[in-house]
Deep mutational scan, measured.
Amino acid sequence: GIPATNLSRVAGLEKQLAIELKVKQGAENMIQTYSNGSTKDRKLLLTAQQMLQDSKTKIDIIRMQLRRALQ
């Protein structure tokens, strides 16, 4: 079985993952909103794209940590 310490770690990672998935969803929504907007929305679009990139990276890292914890 999986050690108890790993189980609480997994629960924490799953919570983090859920949050990051919401951030990713929000960033994707912002990108959709701003991509057909005016030029003043360009900065917001770039910010949203950066957020999305960061979020995807975090999600990958969390998933990797989850896999390790579940081994």
Rank of each mutant, 00 (worst) to 15 (best):
Q53I: 07
Q65M: 11
Q71F: 06
G37S: 08
I31R: 01
T5M: 07
K43Y: 10
Y34D: 01
R63E: 09
K43D: 12
S55P: 00
Y34S: 02
R63Y: 15
V23H: 08
A48Q: 01
K58V: 02
I31Q: 01
I19G: 05
M51Q: 06
I31P: 00
P3K: 05
S8R: 06
T33N: 08
Q65T: 03
G26R: 12
R63V: 10
A11R: 11
S38I: 12
I2A: 10
I62R: 00
G12H: 15
I31W: 02
I2D: 07
E14L: 15
K58S: 03
I19Y: 07
I2S: 11
A11K: 12
E28C: 09
K43A: 13
R67T: 09
A48G: 02
Q32Y: 06
R67G: 03
Q65G: 02
S38V: 08
M64W: 11
M64I: 07
S8N: 13
T5H: 14
S38Q: 09
S55K: 00
L17S: 00
R63G: 03
R68H: 15
K24Q: 07
M64G: 08
A69P: 02
K40Q: 12
R9E: 14
I59F: 00
Q32S: 12
S8M: 06
A18D: 04
R9G: 11
K40E: 11
K40F: 11
D54C: 11
N6Y: 06
R68I: 15
S8F: 07
R67H: 08
L44F: 07
L52W: 06
I2E: 14
D60T: 14
T33R: 13
A48W: 09
Q25I: 08
K43G: 09
M51F: 04
N6W: 05
K56E: 12
E20N: 03
I19M: 11
M30S: 03
R63T: 07
I59P: 00
R9F: 14
V10Y: 04
E28A: 03
D41H: 05
L52Y: 05
L21E: 03
I61N: 10
R42Y: 15
A18M: 10
S55A: 12
S8Q: 14
T39A: 11
A27L: 10
E14C: 15
T5R: 02
S55Y: 01
K24L: 15
I31Y: 02
K56R: 06
Q50C: 11
L13I: 02
M30D: 10
R67A: 11
K58P: 00
K15E: 05
G1L: 10
Q16K: 07
N36C: 14
Q53W: 04
R68E: 14
M51E: 06
I59N: 00
G1T: 11
Q71P: 03
V10S: 02
Q49F: 10
M64S: 09
N36R: 08
L45M: 05
T57R: 14
A11F: 05
G26C: 15
L7E: 12
Q50F: 04
N29H: 12
E14D: 02
I2F: 11
R42M: 13
A69R: 02
A48R: 01
K15A: 08
R63F: 09
N6H: 14
I59Q: 00
N6R: 05
L17R: 01
R63S: 05
N29G: 07
G12R: 15
Q49C: 14
D54W: 06
R67W: 10
G37C: 13
E14P: 01
Y34K: 01
T57E: 09
Q25R: 09
L70C: 10
Q25M: 07
Q32G: 04
S35L: 13
Q50I: 10
V10W: 02
T47H: 12
R68G: 06
G26T: 10
S55C: 13
G37V: 05
L70T: 06
L46H: 08
M51G: 02
Q53N: 04
D54N: 08
L7T: 12
Q25D: 05
I61K: 08
N36V: 06
G1P: 06
L13F: 03
A11P: 04
S35A: 09
T39Q: 12
I2W: 13
I59K: 00
D60F: 15
Q71D: 09
L17F: 02
T39N: 05
Q50P: 00
K58Q: 05
N29E: 13
E14W: 15
G12Y: 15
S8T: 11
L44D: 03
A27R: 03
M51T: 07
A27H: 09
D54S: 07
T39Y: 08
L52V: 03
M30R: 04
Q16F: 04
D60K: 15
A4V: 14
Q25E: 14
N36E: 13
L44A: 09
N36P: 04
E28F: 05
Q50D: 03
D54H: 05
I59L: 05
L7N: 12
I31K: 01
S55W: 01
K22E: 07
G12F: 15
G26S: 12
K22S: 06
Q25K: 13
K15G: 03
L7A: 15
K24H: 05
L46T: 04
Q16H: 03
E28H: 07
D54R: 13
M51H: 04
S35Q: 08
A18Y: 07
Y34C: 05
L45C: 05
K24V: 04
V10K: 04
N6F: 04
K58T: 02
P3C: 15
Q16W: 07
K24G: 01
G12T: 14
L7F: 03
L44E: 05
A18Q: 14
L52A: 02
A18S: 06
S8C: 15
T39D: 11
R42D: 14
L44T: 03
G26E: 14
E20M: 13
G37N: 12
V23F: 10
E14R: 15
I2K: 12
G1W: 10
P3R: 02
Q65P: 00
P3E: 12
K43H: 12
S55D: 00
Q71Y: 05
A48K: 01
A48L: 10
I19T: 05
L70I: 09
L70R: 07
L13E: 00
R68T: 13
I62P: 00
M51R: 06
K40R: 06
L13T: 00
P3F: 08
A18F: 06
A11V: 11
K15M: 07
Q53S: 09
G26A: 09
K58Y: 01
G37P: 10
T47M: 12
K24I: 07
S35T: 06
S55T: 10
G1I: 10
S38A: 14
Q32H: 11
Q16C: 13
I59T: 01
Q65V: 03
T39S: 11
K40L: 10
E28T: 03
L66R: 01
E28L: 13
N29L: 13
G12K: 15
A18C: 14
Q50G: 03
Q25A: 10
I2G: 07
Q49E: 06
A4Q: 14
G37Y: 02
I59E: 01
R68W: 13
N36K: 09
A18T: 06
T5C: 15
I61W: 06
L45I: 04
S35G: 05
N36H: 12
R42H: 15
V23P: 00
S38D: 14
S38W: 04
I31G: 01
I19Q: 09
A27T: 03
L52G: 00
K40H: 11
K22M: 08
Q16Y: 04
T33S: 12
K15S: 04
E14H: 09
Q65C: 12
I62D: 00
T39V: 06
M51I: 08
L44Q: 12
T57C: 14
A11H: 05
G37L: 06
I61Y: 09
